[in-house]
Design a protein around this nucleic acid. Structure first.
Lengths: 136, 136
DNA sequence: AAGTTTATGCAACTGAGTTGCAAACTAATC
DNA sequence: GATTAGTTTGCAACTCAGTTGCATAAACTT
């Protein structure tokens, strides 16, 4: 638990049992998960608590949210150094076959030349297609 | 109405009064609009009919949908030639100040080198920031 | 005109996200 | 270690976007 604890305190999040549990679940995921996915990992749980936990994590930049167009926002862990600035962002992939959403952490979002006088704060880029596991 | 009619029939959509009206409204928009935005442009209207109209338009590639992360999907007209293939797609912009969503029709979505064995079908790219009108 | 297909309108529902409030817990102080 | 103040959790209840089923109306077919 020490490690999980540190990750929380490093991000200025008071480590409660609930939050450690949620962080552990998020850590073992290979893909981004939604609030209701998360809810189903608990036998007995309260959606609202999980909701607020995710909000807190996101606010403190421990996780980031991905709007993959499925109607449910997905969440995934940020890298240790991530500040969620445009230059920290990466592309996400949604597989139309297995319906999973992944971080393509190695693929930064290409920079865009916006029209004059537009300023940029954030970018969401989701590629949809078929992932390698489903393409065999 | 002749022109509106043609746009519908060109896309294989049977031109009804309702559909002409919706297409006209969409045509005069400078920004993408949501279902409920559209609903409010009618004094008396049925959400479901508008919903199905938009679905039909989207299916026939007369309009495209934009998931800007606000929780309500927005819609905007496609170019005449658009087939909604990856190469037809452009970047969208959401202004954090005026809360409007625009097509940046002139900015194509940059191509991405996906990992091996990933195939691509579609891309959604939304840049968030402040638009030129709000940046004065 | 009768029959078939398509579009529209109404009611009702689902599911994600959210708020308010009270109880439980934690941390800080005496 | 009891008292208080602040934070977190759990429950109920609600909002709002999107959606389905079904009945009526309109448009096409012969």
């Amino acid at each position: 638990m020490k490690d999980t604890d540190d990750k929380l305190t490093n991000r200025n999040i008071k480590p409660t049992a609930m939050r450690e549990l949620v962080l552990d679940i998020l850590t073992e995921q290979k893909m981004a998960i939604s609030l209701s996915d998360l809810e189903q990992k608990f036998h007995k749980s309260d959606k609202v608590t999980l909701y607020r936990t995710l909000k807190t994590f996101e606010e403190k930049k421990l996780i980031h949210s991905i709007d993959d167009g499925t109607g449910a926002v997905k969440y995934a862990l940020c890298k240790e150094s991530c500040q969620c600035h445009p230059e920290d962002l990466h592309v996400h992939f949604f597989c139309l076959k297995c319906q999973h959403t992944f971080c393509l952490s190695d693929i930064p979002i290409p920079s865009i030349n916006l029209p004059v006088n537009f300023s940029i704060e954030n970018i969401n880029m989701v590629v949809k297609g078929v992932c390698s596991s489903c393409n065999d």
